[in-house]
Design a protein around this nucleic acid. Sequence first.
DNA 1: CGTCGTATTGAATGGGTTCAAGTAGCGTGG
DNA 2: CCACGCTACTTGAACCCATTCAATACGACG
Lengths: 247, 247
Amino acid sequence: MTFHARADLAPLICKLESITRLSDRARSAIESLPVSVRVLDANQHIVRDKDRPTQCCLILEGWAYRYKLLSDGKRQILSFHVPGDLPDMQSLHLHVMDHNLATLKGCRIALVPHASLRQLIRTEPDVAAALWRETLVDAAIFREWMTGIGRRTAYGRIAHLFCEMYLRLRAVGLADDLQYGFVPTQGDVADALGLSNVHVNRVLQTLRSDGLVSLRGHKLAIRDWRGLTEAAEFDPVYLHLERPETP
Amino acid sequence: MTFHARADLAPLICKLESITRLSDRARSAIESLPVSVRVLDANQHIVRDKDRPTQCCLILEGWAYRYKLLSDGKRQILSFHVPGDLPDMQSLHLHVMDHNLATLKGCRIALVPHASLRQLIRTEPDVAAALWRETLVDAAIFREWMTGIGRRTAYGRIAHLFCEMYLRLRAVGLADDLQYGFVPTQGDVADALGLSNVHVNRVLQTLRSDGLVSLRGHKLAIRDWRGLTEAAEFDPVYLHLERPETP
DNA sequence: CGTCGTATTGAATGGGTTCAAGTAGCGTGG
DNA sequence: CCACGCTACTTGAACCCATTCAATACGACG
């Protein structure tokens, strides 16, 4: 556990600046946030359904995900999170968690006390707007996923997820050349997209044989960006990135 | 078109107070917002995908809904909105619309300029927090819908929608006694829940014959709240209401 | 009283699930 | 170094929830 680990906040700054411009003053206000850095293994809970957190989590390294569980054991993954994301910002204003947040693989995370964030928000309206905006992009991604689950074919859904994660990772400097480390298992993808793991497996094979992607180990390479975005009907507007130019 | 229609803002105040407490000062700051009231017919667009709105919309009367359209004409309804809702608050911080907002039936709406809202947010931190919170509840509802579409049966999904809209309408004083005016058509419900209109029709008949609800015209009556919530696995936590006691 | 949108019903089809079994990959310990 | 065990991945076959297509009935409204 480290305090005032200024360098650790770089992913957040990077993320915020991928969608807004920050003044020097705003940036240094963020950098002086007191944070507590933790290292977690894979498949560890960060916050649980019904918890009442007193701090927010920032992903520094690794992947995390949010999910809900139904009584019959069915799981719906609500979102994937990568460095720079603040997956439980909503706990700042919604006091009870309505879902779980857990690591998908080993993570370094920074915990920021609500009190410090509230202080920051009061004194730095620009930062407040940027953080609010983050939560709105989060919601925009939910809308897009909902649309996929409700109305897209399995093929389009999976293609869409690959496109989205590529742009999100690229925005924080963790992808380029149409490649990135894709951490979720096929079972995770199934639970994220409302499918079965068996069907995800078969559709992945089709995506590969159609020459759109290759995925071995957890290395994803997009072989045909154009084809993939067309299969996905992918329009990056919903990510609200500053520079959304696609490759 | 009316300006400074103070009484018109009552649904908003009511809605905000259903989840937070407002100081007198905050309340009067809201009441003095300059608003422009409009009356719209059914099936009119309020804001469209790709628009760059300069004002936010508050529903005063009627139902509205947000949706996305896929290229093959498939429609995904993202949310239903009732009086007191601010269905396009996100436009305050996300400058391009990534979906459409339209009326489901005739509506009275109030339009509030972004500039006035920004002013309000700067000077009234409590109101800012309450509005931010609204957008977070919006996102929480998306998460719940995503879970339904991804992992619940058609039966559970429809039951869930009936439960949710009952509590939301009751929170703004528009439902009681387990009854309310349910405006969406079966086709609308289908597009909201990722189903076909035919299947919605059949499942509705089952819900009726199971004695859970009756729905004639657009009057919905919940005949068995307990049974309906169990069928839906409905847990109202995600609505983040102050007084979530169920009937 | 016709007309248009909505609701209802039947029958055939299909995208995706479930169940079940088998394979590959990888870290661990003997 | 290999056996072991675990997890993820892969394949086949039967099944089903929900879709699609198509036709019919209802109901509100000018």
